[in-house]
Amino acid sequence: MAQSNKHEAIERNVFFLIVLTLLAVSVGGLVEIVPLFFQTSTTTAVDDKGNKLDVKPYDPVRLVGRDIYIREGCYNCHSQMIRPFRAETERYGHFSVAGEFIYDHPFQWGSKRTGPDLARVGGRYTSEWHRTHLINPRDVVEESNMPAFPWLNRPADFSDVQDKMRALRQVGVPYSDEEIRTADATIKAYQNEELGGIAPTELDALIAYLQGLGTALRNVR
């Protein structure tokens, strides 16, 4: 058999080479990623057994708190993804399921734990604890190496929260017109009911966000 010369056809035609390369590298994504967009467990609020979860889009205060979480780089040290191992579920609670994150754009799963996982931190500590801890972690946990975030004790900026909600609606978060229109009233109500009328600081917004984390599947291993 003569030595094959067919490879020349690809090597001498750059466009053909590009097309074949793209085809080859896309197979993995087409098989492993694309079907996830069409699975009930990854696109709707259900747990691993198919039970419906009470997952709601972030209210305006929590949404701003979430952006502070991202701005301060909390995700660099804190994951939000409890893996289905006993050692993790003993400490943090039920392992995370995809349905809990359907309104997270982008999700905050993180990839490194210098601090503990925060996926189910909601309701675990008092808000006073969070306040003390964020201003100076050493005040409550002597051994902590978490940096202090004292500057968060300043008024939170809610001026663009409606734009944020509209932007999230573009990527599929079901905020109603009503919810967007009344965002300011929602913030005002939070201010009056929980903060005694004092305008929410960035600490308040961040704590509101943290206190809501993982509560859809709470207290179950």
Binding site: G123, R124, Y125, T126, S127, E128, E194, Q211, N219
Partner: peptide, 16 residues
């Protein structure tokens, strides 16, 4: 104690 902001509280651990 305030049910939502959870001040001055010891969380319940029985369920967890």
């Amino acid at each position: 104690f305030d049910n939502r902001s959870l001040k001055n509280a010891m969380p319940a651990w029985g369920e967890f």
